[in-house]
Computed example of a mutant assay.
Amino acid sequence: MEKIGEAVKILLVNMFYNEEGGAQKSTTLLAEQLAKEGHEVSVYSIDTDKPVKEQKNGVNVYRRSTWTFNLNYIFKPQKSVLKHLFYKCFETYNKKAEHNFEEILEQVKPEVVHFNCLSGMSLSIIEIAKMRGIRTVLTLRDYWLEKPWGIKKNFLVKIMNKRLEPRIKKTLSYIDVVTAPSAFTLNHFIDKGYFNPSLQICKVVENAVTFSYSNLKEIIEEKRSIVHEKNTRFLFVGSILRQKGIFKMVDAFKKLSNYPDITLEIVGRGADVEQLQQEIVLDSRIRYLGFQFTPKLDEIYRSADVLLVPSDWDEPFGRVVIEGNSNGLPVIGSNRGGIPEIITTTGGGEIFDVSNVLNLVDVMEKFIKMSDYNNYFDSILLTIDTYKIEKQSEKFLRLY
């Protein structure tokens, strides 16, 4: 990779810093790659009960708590209404998070602050960075800025989202550079007036994965030789939530009852696990494997034939698609959000209409009947480097 200028002091901000979800994983991979390239990288997150400073793979991580906001609570499937309302009041304006941020700025003295998911971290930290003359970058990894009080169609949620909109848009005017991992997400926010391309730099910077090209070639050569010496093994990896299309996927798979030897393995965790287990209990071809970390997840990818990404909502990107392709898996993905952009770019799969379960059944059956997946394999090998972490870090450094 071409070296771009001198080492930069960068502070990445994200509510979590781990590898348990798409946004967290994307932030972590970028931070570690930038550190690997010789930049001074720090991260501020609020995913702890007590202050922690640690170094992980060359990255200085500042984990802080906010007494007015508890991440562990807001992601519980069952919540007290009053307690939930209390936490919602502090998602956009949180004095403790603001104080934490100022303290970390004093220690790190960054040249660039790169904001990611900011729920619970106080929008005022964007203004604080800008008032100190620090360059500000924001990556859109979710839709929280548009609907901070959620997407439920009740009166209070609608009123609060509408009331906060002018404040959020004013705060976002302090951002110098806005990026999104897909054109779909970037255009969505621009069209709704959250950003102004004539005053701000607005760019698509795709999410990335780390992988060995030689290892990918080896995996694909192995898969070329065994496709349909066994029966098709479908795989789902992601959050176990209705919005991820998981129940439509299970319904579609069950309709393929004339193929008794195909299988579907499901990896992940989420609020709808109990319902999922009830749905699959009578079909022995479907197995729920729980949440899996690398390297066990890599083994599961390697043993599968086709990855299913049936998301029912507009994914800002859909990083599991590139994870599947980079592990030699063709992908069947829904036509929502950024998913079609990835599949079109890599040529490593097929897109289905998520509003039509029978369309998903047809596409799955197409893969079951295929004699080989060589067209997908060849295309993946030609295009997957679009999503290499080195290319992503280069794009961000140019923007920094």
Rank of each mutant, 00 (worst) to 15 (best):
V209Y: 06
L199P: 04
Q200P: 06
C202E: 02
V205R: 07
V227F: 13
L199Y: 07
F211Q: 00
E222L: 10
I219L: 12
E206T: 13
N196C: 09
H228K: 14
V205D: 00
H228A: 13
R224P: 07
A208Y: 06
S212W: 04
V227Q: 13
V205T: 01
F211W: 03
S212L: 04
T210V: 14
C202H: 08
N207W: 02
F211K: 01
E206N: 09
L216K: 00
K230V: 09
L199D: 09
V227S: 04
E206D: 14
V209N: 10
E222Q: 14
T232L: 08
I201E: 13
N231I: 08
K230E: 12
N231K: 13
V205K: 02
V227G: 04
K217W: 11
L199F: 05
L199I: 08
L216H: 01
V209W: 00
S212G: 10
N215E: 10
H228Q: 12
K217F: 09
I226A: 14
K230F: 05
N196F: 02
E229Q: 11
R224V: 07
Y213L: 11
K230M: 07
K230C: 05
S198D: 07
N231H: 08
V227N: 13
P197V: 03
I220E: 07
H228Y: 12
V227W: 14
I220P: 04
I220Y: 00
N215F: 02
L216A: 05
I226S: 15
R224T: 04
Y213M: 15
K223V: 07
L216V: 00
P197K: 01
I201F: 00
I220W: 00
S214C: 06
N196E: 12
E222P: 03
L216S: 00
I226M: 11
S225F: 10
V209G: 02
P197W: 00
Y213P: 06
V209C: 02
K230W: 08
S212P: 10
Q200N: 04
S225E: 14
H228V: 14
H228W: 15
S212C: 14
E222A: 12
V204C: 02
V227H: 15
R224A: 12
I226T: 14
I219V: 10
E218S: 15
L199N: 09
T232Q: 03
V205C: 05
N215M: 10
S212E: 07
T210A: 09
S198Y: 06
C202Y: 02
Y213A: 04
E221S: 12
K203L: 02
E206V: 05
K223Y: 06
E229V: 13
